[in-house]
């Protein structure tokens, strides 16, 4: 049953992603890519489990490394996207 539910969610999210992205102006592609990439840092939630459950020493170390990398992805991703968008906006304001 778990398999059915998870596959269901996967299929729905594929459609959702396609619908969300399909009508975006080309100038916004780079920040959109960067923002969507930051969301993929949600793997952090899985990394917490691996780092914090104390299953074994290996799992803890792998989890800690995963937490660090995923946090880089999240923090860096959002900050970089914001910087890009800030530039986008000021340039647009200047043109007006």
């Amino acid at each position: 049953m778990e398999l059915v539910f998870l596959t269901f969610i996967l299929v729905l999210s594929i459609f959702l992603g396609f619908e969300l992205i399909s009508k975006v102006p080309a100038t916004l592609h780079t920040p959109l890519m960067s923002g969507a990439n930051a969301i993929s840092g949600i793997t952090l939630a899985g990394a917490f489990l691996s780092a914090g459950m104390q299953n074994s020493e290996y799992a803890t170390w792998l989890g800690t490394a995963a937490v660090a990398f995923a946090t880089i992805n999240v923090v860096g991703g959002y900050l970089v996207t914001d910087r890009m968008l800030a530039m986008f906006k000021s340039r647009k304001g200047g043109a007006k």
Binding site: M33, A66, I72
Partner: peptide, 26 residues
């Protein structure tokens, strides 16, 4: 910026690899 996004994306990728790897040690 494009390089940076590539690097961040790569770090996200290796994070999920490590999560998968860590899950093996149930």
């Amino acid at each position: 910026m494009p390089e940076m996004v590539a690097l961040f994306n790569g770090s996200g990728g290796i994070a999920s690899l490590l999560v998968g790897w860590g899950t093996l040690y149930a």
